[in-house]
Design a protein around this nucleic acid. Structure first.
Lengths: 250, 250
DNA sequence: TCTCCGCCTTGATCGAGATCAAGCAAAGAA
DNA sequence: TTCTTTGCTTGATCTCGATCAAGGCGGAGA
């Protein structure tokens, strides 16, 4: 399939603001591929709390998170809810070749997405094998994360669930500040207690109680409801029930 | 990259015994690709109960299930166990470009795998874009299944969990016999009560009690411990907690 | 035929987390 | 200012599934 673009070539540098480059698509792109990427990508912004897609309703784009946090949630007929995806910056949203959303998608903070319409993205995938290979790797990583999440849901105690979620957010939070000597980590929770409960398969009351318990036991320090300091990351990790080897960024 | 094979071409028919054709790899293969597939694939057999891989230990092949059932299981330090994958015929095992197993893999029935060593499979992926595209689709399907599983683990009652597992196995069991008039379905459980408990995030006692309860309520009929008849599949589905639209094979 | 062992069932009791309920604090809106 | 709303905390009580315990059953091997 011929490439019809004829604009001047873009350098890697020119594409540095393309979040897809860091996630789904152009880690190994050639200049002419980058140029094509630039020509079909566009941005969408959402306010905190805004719903991006409804389960079963049309969703005609895919994309990746540039900034902010979004959640995928499934609701049962009687109202029970379970979060099944937590999208942080660089995570991918949507499924190629699927016109409808499978889950409710909600922005839990102000959010910026870098998007591609389904059709041009399809063509990109067909023309550019390494993009689908990259997408395969990302999806396999997401599957591993889903399996970790299944262990959390199936076998961990409420306290272990909270500690695990805090360590997951701490690990990935961009504003994370770490003092190597003290192993102290600081971040803001991007989720309400209720959203945390939906993530963990708990009620919001249990989430609140267990956070209070971790604070009482000095595993975490809270300023306000959302700002968390972890004075000793190893201590937090020891509460997760996970194998304890590997450093903060292991 | 040149193809160096020069043996006589194989027809689609010749590859009909290749389970990969029905799963990961050659749904859209050309004859010369099939020939290459044939040249690198091989079979492995396991007895019921035999362990195929150990978490963290080397696993230098990928493959797909031809016959039988295998499970992926994660064990926590204190012995708590959670199943994170149930592999039925045509499912894919292993991760391209990863030399070590992430989970314990166990054959729960006699099992036949159609395998590829990592290195030739890598090359196959690089040479044959539609194979990695097919693998991407399969992985996305697996991710959807993992997310359904998360809802089960996080929000369903013990009774709903059992009903869900029975319907999942019934749906996919090859020996399934269905009478369209009566909606009656018959199959054998490929898992022990303990393995079912590991799947569902329950104890084996609770599994046993809930199966007894479903039998008492005539949702299922048991002959022996493993042979299940579902007299009314819609009735079973109504016990799962899932949205009830869509037929048996919906 | 007996015995053993793996797999399963059932009963009694316990406890972690759910549910029901009350109230606090901060941020808007009137 | 006062009222309302949203998000959160804490207390009292309940319940579902875990835990502890005792057998049953059926197939394999002596």
């Amino acid at each position: 399939m011929p490439r019809t673009m004829s604009a001047p070539r873009l350098t890697q540098q020119d594409c540095s603001n393309c979040p897809i480059r860091h996630s789904a698509v152009c880690a190994r792109c050639e200049a002419d591929e980058l140029e094509r990427l630039e020509s079909v990508k566009y941005y969408r912004s959402y306010k905190a709390g805004q719903q991006i897609a409804w389960a079963g309703e049309p969703l005609d784009f895919v994309g990746s998170v540039v900034e902010g946090v979004a959640t995928l949630t499934q609701t049962m007929e009687d109202g029970r809810r379970q979060m099944v995806g937590l999208l942080l910056p660089s995570d991918f949203l949507g499924r190629p070749n699927r016109a409808k959303a499978t889950y409710d998608v909600v922005a839990t903070t102000d959010l910026v997405l870098c998007c591609f319409r389904q059709k041009p993205f399809q063509e990109l995938l067909l023309d550019t094998p390494h993009i689908s290979q990259r997408l395969l790797e990302m999806t396999l990583d997401e599957l591993d994360a889903a399996r970790e999440w299944m262990i959390l849901l199936g076998r961990k105690t409420a306290r272990e669930k909270i500690a695990s979620l805090l360590s997951i957010i701490a690990r990935r939070d961009a504003s994370l500040r770490e003092n190597p000597a003290e192993q102290s980590v600081v971040f803001d929770l991007p989720l309400t207690r209720e959203a945390m409960a939906d993530y963990l398969g708990l009620t919001l009351e249990t989430v609140s109680r267990q956070i209070s318990a971790l604070r009482r036991d000095k595993v975490i320090v809270l300023e306000g409801k959302r700002h968390v300091t972890v004075p000793d990351f190893d201590l937090l990790m020891s509460e997760t029930g996970d194998d304890s080897d590997g450093g903060i960024f292991g």
